[in-house]
């Protein structure tokens, strides 16, 4: 499992961008999707998730804005930018290549 989570962690940013491609979202919701899609086998640590947000934001791949919740605490939403979409496509292509290589090696 530790190898699996290492590989997954290496792709944290692509995983986040993929979620934002579907719709704007906020931290907990993204983590919830990840959990659901992996049948509760994988979950990002909050520290990892928010560090990735900061990196993506600095790189200009995502932008954030505060939602106007009428009840409860306000949430910070993230939205993917055009350069972010391009970066996602590149990362995805890289991953496909790596996957093909590993399949032929292992």
């Amino acid at each position: 499992m530790s190898i699996t989570s290492d590989i997954l962690r290496g792709h944290t940013e692509t995983i986040i961008l993929k979620q934002l491609l579907i719709s704007d979202s906020y931290g907990y919701q993204i983590n919830k999707y990840i959990q659901e899609k992996t049948d509760n086998q994988f979950e990002l640590k909050e520290a990892t998730l928010y560090s990735a947000f900061r990196r993506l934001e600095t790189a200009g791949y995502i932008v954030s804005y505060w939602g106007d919740e009428t009840t409860g605490a306000r949430r910070r939403y993230y939205s993917i930018t055009t350069t972010g979409k391009k970066y996602y496509e590149e990362s995805k292509k890289e991953w496909e290549e790596a996957k093909g290589l590993l399949d032929s090696l292992i």
Binding site: G27, Y28, N31, K32, Y50, A73, R75, R76
Partner: peptide, 17 residues
Amino acid sequence: MELQEELIANCLEKFND
């Protein structure tokens, strides 16, 4: 301060879930 606020909000939502 914003990062702290964001973290708290998300963690509390997880707690309630």
